[in-house]
C-alpha cells in the first residue's frame, strides 16, 4: 500500500491529483508524494487487524430506533430568486452560470 519507491509515490500522487482535479506541479508532487507515503505508512496498522465478518458503519452512528431516514412530502417550497442563486458565481450573464466552452460531456 505504501511504496518505498519515490517515483511510484509521485506517480500515485499524480494520478490521484488528476482524479481530484488538483493541478499540482512537479516539486509539489514530490513533496506530497513523500508525505503521502509517510501518512499511509503511519496508518498501516489498519491492515493488520482482523475484520473478517465485521459489519461496516456507514454514515454517522445511529441508535437502532432511528436507523432509517425520514421522508419529505412532495410539497413545493419556494426556490431562490435567480439573482440570489447567481450572485456568488464568478461568471454569469443574469440567466446562466457561464463556464469555459466544453463539449463532449462529463469525464
Amino acid at each position: 500500500m505504501s511504496n518505498p519507491d519515490p517515483s511510484a509515490e509521485r506517480e500515485l500522487v499524480h494520478k490521484t491529483a488528476a482524479l481530484a482535479r488538483l493541478s499540482i506541479g512537479a516539486a509539489e508532487e514530490a513533496r506530497l508524494g513523500a508525505q503521502f507515503a509517510r501518512i499511509l505508512g503511519a496508518f498501516h496498522s489498519l491492515s493488520e487487524l482482523n475484520v473478517e465478518g465485521v459489519p461496516e458503519t456507514t454514515g454517522g452512528p445511529r441508535p437502532a430506533s432511528a436507523a432509517f431516514g425520514r421522508l419529505r412530502a412532495d410539497e413545493p417550497r419556494a426556490s431562490l430568486e435567480r439573482a440570489a442563486a447567481l450572485v456568488n458565481a464568478p461568471q454569469q450573464d443574469g440567466e446562466f452560470y457561464v463556464v469555459p466552452k466544453t463539449v463532449g460531456g462529463p469525464s
Binding site: D74, P76, R77, A78, S79, L80, R82, E95
Partner: peptide
C-alpha cells in the same frame, strides 16, 4: 413528482433558466 428528489423546488420543463433552484440543488 411535483418537487425534486432531495429538495422542494418545483421543476417545470421549459421554465426560465435557473429559476427553479435552491440552496440544496445548487
Amino acid at each position: 413528482t411535483r418537487t425534486k428528489l432531495f429538495c422542494g423546488c418545483e421543476y417545470r420543463f421549459g421554465a426560465e433558466p435557473n429559476t427553479r433552484t435552491c440552496a440544496v440543488c445548487t
